Computed example of a mutant assay.
Amino acid sequence: MKQRIITAVIALAIFIPILIMGGFWIDFAAAALAYVGISEVYIMRKRIIVSFDFILTTLGVMALTVPITFYKGWLPSSISRLDILYIFSILLLLWTVFSKNKFNFEDAGVSIVSMAYIGTGFHYLAAIRNVNGTDFYGFKLLIFALLIVWITDSGAYFVGRAIGKHKLFPYISPNKTWEGSIGGTVIAVIIATIYAMYFLPNIDFTYIIIISIIASIAGQLGDLVESAYKRFYRVKDSGKILPGHGGILDRFDSMLIVLPLLHLFGLV
């Protein structure tokens, strides 16, 4: 527990100033987190992280993470993030040929999905913070998303411990319960809605409630997705970069699902 607290304090001392500054700093942080995240996928799969396919996948996830304006001046102005995903997907598929199937179609599939999942999630970590708007709108919106994720997680833990009896997905995550899941969502929606009333007053009240409910559920599903692939690869944590907390994917599993949702809901 002591180690977890120390790691959390140090991480927040680094992360919060970056969130406040935004701009280049959050773009750089998002790209760095994406690099570590994709490395964790390769390590879980027991694949070499100095291989050509790792280099391609890393370039792909970084290209998906950084703002599209990064390519302005040296790529066609019409290029989109979907185009970038397609280009790197084709390159990985071509490598199955040139590697003589030492890197095969299934390997390419995992790399492509990982690129899309990690790259898109961390892209919106920076994109939300850097969204144009007055009165620190992007920062407030990002805190709104983080609140939903963190409060859902904490609420589900304490409610589940207190009254949890019915297992949610016992094979994937044996400690999670329906009572904890519902309780976490209710608490998160209440607190996130109160926060939005004061800090995001321009967003419709009913819409905030709907978004909070969906984001809370999506965050829990993101957690379960990570539990599923960790169980598949037979690892306890995605990595060891955060002593007492595991890896980057362990800490950002819910946010990788929730942050792009804010874009889908038209808030970014």
Score class of each variant (00 low, 15 high):
172 I>P: 07
196 A>H: 07
104 N>R: 10
223 D>K: 01
137 Y>G: 05
127 A>Q: 14
159 V>A: 12
172 I>Q: 05
129 R>S: 05
117 Y>S: 02
219 G>A: 05
158 F>W: 10
196 A>R: 03
216 S>F: 00
138 G>I: 03
202 N>P: 00
142 L>C: 06
151 I>D: 03
190 I>Q: 06
144 F>Q: 05
146 L>R: 03
95 W>C: 03
105 F>C: 12
200 L>P: 04
123 H>P: 06
203 I>G: 05
193 T>L: 09
179 E>N: 06
113 V>C: 08
196 A>E: 11
167 K>E: 06
157 Y>D: 06
98 F>M: 11
148 I>Q: 07
220 Q>N: 07
152 T>S: 14
135 D>R: 06
181 S>C: 13
126 A>Y: 10
216 S>D: 06
199 F>K: 06
139 F>G: 04
136 F>H: 10
121 G>Y: 02
128 I>P: 06
93 L>R: 02
185 T>H: 00
186 V>F: 14
106 E>Y: 14
133 G>W: 13
210 I>A: 13
164 G>M: 12
190 I>W: 04
141 L>Q: 06
117 Y>Q: 01
208 I>V: 15
191 I>C: 08
198 Y>C: 14
160 G>D: 13
190 I>V: 15
109 G>T: 12
167 K>Y: 02
90 I>D: 01
119 G>R: 00
192 A>V: 07
153 D>K: 01
92 L>P: 03
186 V>T: 11
97 V>H: 04
180 G>Q: 09
131 V>W: 09
116 A>I: 13
105 F>W: 13
128 I>G: 08
168 L>I: 01
143 I>P: 00
210 I>C: 04
128 I>W: 14
99 S>Y: 13
119 G>C: 01
220 Q>P: 02
121 G>H: 02
188 A>E: 04
198 Y>N: 15
165 K>Y: 09
218 A>Y: 00
209 I>E: 01
118 I>L: 08
114 S>P: 10
126 A>D: 05
110 V>E: 11
130 N>H: 06
188 A>T: 00
117 Y>E: 04
101 N>W: 08
111 S>Q: 12
97 V>W: 13
95 W>D: 08
205 F>L: 12
124 Y>R: 08
94 L>G: 10
221 L>V: 15
96 T>K: 05
223 D>E: 03
